[in-house]
Simulated assay, not measured.
Amino acid sequence: MGGVADQEAGFPAGSDTEIESLAEFDAAAAHATLAGFRVQSVDLTTRTPVLLRTDTAGAVFLGCAMEPDAAAKVRADGALVFPPVPHLPFDPYRGTLYSPAELFEGLGAGYERTPDALSYAWFQRTKADGDIFSSMLRSIHDDAISDALDELLVGARVVGVMGGHAMGRGTAEYEGAAVLGRTLARAGFTVATGGGPGAMEAANLGAYAAPFEDAMLGSALELLAEEPSFRPSVSAWARAAFEVRAKWPRGGASVGIPTWFYGHEPPNAFAGAIAKYFANATREDGLLARSNAGVVFLPGAAGTVQEIFDNATPNYYESRGTPTPMVLVDRAHWTERLPTWPLLEALAEDRPMAGRIALVDSVSEAPEALARMSR
């Protein structure tokens, strides 16, 4: 976001700013020039008269629908125009993150008809076909998502909550992860997860429940337990989540960062903003890098182990400055079933990160451990 804010702050038209809505476009165009602006995925078909009388030299239009005469004039001005790409289930130039309602639009007709499922199907068809155009579209989309995510999280204290997708609704573990998300949100943190089912959904649910009385979370957990898993039916699993959202609207905000690389795992509907990527490596690194207030690792399998050491590496080398806190939950899991903690502890020996890692027995201990290491 930038165009309107910069104009109101007195920056001259032509500074490097982004326009991501009609309101921002109108405010910027009132200065009679769009030079230097980047207009991102805004439908301008109703703004032909404005475009015809406004100087657009030096502007960049990314995926903006325009009437033919307006598009011709803008190009004649010397603006760069990247037209919308037809017949895609996603917008590669989008200026904002996804909402659950957007990704699950059409759920009533079955999950396979939703934009989320259609985008995954497109990815499956194109990911190995060697077509540079398809790979370019994926890259543009993911860069736009990263830009929108950075804009959303400016000034936020972000705690990442990592954990496996297999954690079922109706279990004590799921409830614990939800309480963790609620506790972190009430403490003023922005909860960020991998955006999928299981532990990720539970933490996002907890953040969603933060503004309500404590009893709301218990009631929501009971409703969700009727559809404990996204298998065999994503549709039923997602509908249960939207029933909770409908019963308790305007819940707390949090972020989900899922990927179509693991498209068999649908995004959860409790993250208010969803940064969904095609490239899993970009998604993984981005999630951990933005968790500037620490990361809690709930029990998981290979994916969670990878995330632990993806986060440990910059902490070890201090490549992002002061190491961020890392809390591993469930001593038996991380020392016996998947003995990750001994290696992490050995890496941290005699390094600044030694004071920023902790192993706790239960999820209820994680917030205090985070607070202790952040002092």
Rank of each mutant, 00 (worst) to 15 (best):
V4S: 05
S374M: 10
V42M: 10
A70G: 14
E67K: 13
A172W: 03
G108L: 11
S374Q: 12
L359E: 02
L328G: 01
S374L: 12
D26F: 00
V154N: 07
L298Y: 01
P68F: 05
A199W: 01
A28S: 10
L287N: 02
A210Y: 01
W334A: 03
P83V: 04
K73V: 11
S233I: 06
R250Y: 03
G108C: 12
S364C: 09
D310G: 06
N268F: 05
T282R: 15
R231P: 04
D214Q: 10
G181R: 00
G36L: 09
A72F: 03
A210F: 00
A207C: 00
L180S: 01
E213C: 05
V60E: 14
P314F: 04
G294Y: 01
E227W: 02
F230H: 12
R113L: 12
E24H: 07
S319M: 15
A253W: 05
G3R: 08
R320K: 14
A312Q: 06
G198R: 03
P249D: 07
A269W: 01
A72Q: 14
H87D: 15
E265R: 06
V60C: 10
R94V: 07
A215E: 14
F212W: 04
A358L: 09
A238R: 09
A302S: 14
T171I: 09
G95C: 07
G181D: 01
A57V: 13
G194N: 06
I145N: 02
F270S: 03
